[in-house]
């Protein structure tokens, strides 16, 4: 169950609302459905482009992952709650300052991947 608050200061107010909609849904959603959900309880409806911009920004930050579903894009949360988002944010921002990580994430070179597989045998 997604939690809100706690480390929620990592997200802006509208970003937090978008994340809440996606966490409640429990499945990837397109922009149109998220916008409809956000506008359900609103007097002044948010424009589709506003919601799309916010979701694109969240995808750029690595908080949402975008994938194609038929002819449209859908978005899904990468993290399960705001605490996880915040920890990932801190690791990303300050990670090289005074942390010893097990391994840096890297797009593995295919040869390196094969060398690791051979070591496992």
């Amino acid at each position: 169950m997604a939690e809100q608050g706690g480390a929620g200061s990592t997200l802006g107010p509208l970003e937090a609302e978008v994340m809440a909609v996606l966490w409640r849904a429990g499945r990837p959603l397109p922009v149109r459905e998220v916008a409809a959900e956000l506008n359900a309880g609103r007097d002044a409806a948010l424009a589709y482009t506003t919601v799309m911009t916010v979701m694109s920004r969240l995808a750029g930050k690595g908080i949402l992952v975008r994938s194609r579903s038929g002819r449209r894009f859908v978005y899904a949360p990468v993290a399960a709650d705001t605490a996880e988002i915040a920890v990932r944010g801190v690791l990303a921002e300050f990670g090289d300052a005074a942390l010893a990580r097990f391994v840096e994430r890297a797009e593995l070179d295919p040869q390196l991947r094969e060398r690791l597989r051979r070591l496992m045998e």
Partner: peptide, 29 residues
């Protein structure tokens, strides 16, 4: 090697890549 393969293989988070412009991850691995 198995642990390295699994944990290093996950797609690099764009925020992590932006925060680590030196990109030492591949050379270290």
């Amino acid at each position: 090697a198995g642990a390295l393969l699994k944990l290093a293989s996950m797609p690099a988070c764009p925020a992590v890549a932006a925060a680590n412009p030196e990109g030492n991850g591949s050379r270290s691995l």
